[in-house]
Amino acid sequence: MTKNILLVGVGGQGTILASKLLTIGLMKSGYDVKMSEIHGMSQRGGSVSSQVRFGDNVASPVIEAGSADILVAFEKMEAMRWMPYLKKDGKLIVNDFEINPMPVLTGRAQYSSDIKSVLTDATKTDFVDASSAAMTIGNPKVMNIILLGALVKAMGLEAIDWHAIIASEVKPKFIELNKRAFDQGMQMIS
């Protein structure tokens, strides 16, 4: 049975690194893995997604609408945008963090203040304050690894040696920082 994990956010938030680490962990656990992402123009502050599929024998590299087992949104509005991809009764992990799209910055649209309650009513939702946690750890950029930690906990994949994967993939001076971020994320989800 193929499982679908969808990671979404805004260009520059580090969804690609988080999903890369996830796929390495899944590969090391013996799964067939496929991951799909779109590069190019959408990176310029646009909405981005990484689609991870794993199982015995994965066919399509893309996740269909209504079939993601877990949706991890690095930003609240992106959770709203990608909700149609979440399976009925699927699990939603949302970074409690806002990045205003250009129409909101220029005052032509409003960033809904109801997102939290709307999402909580819609499905099983965990809000993770990765932004504050990242500041406490000392670098706002590790939000992505905090969210990866939360995702790993939600998937029940704690047995994999994630610290070793982090050590093999990030620059030496950021390894300890990212390990702490990962551990912090694991603790931020029920």
Partner: peptide, 10 residues
């Protein structure tokens, strides 16, 4: 409730 996020100059 979703606001579009078109790509923009960084």
């Amino acid at each position: 409730l979703t606001v579009p996020r078109p790509p923009a100059f960084c």
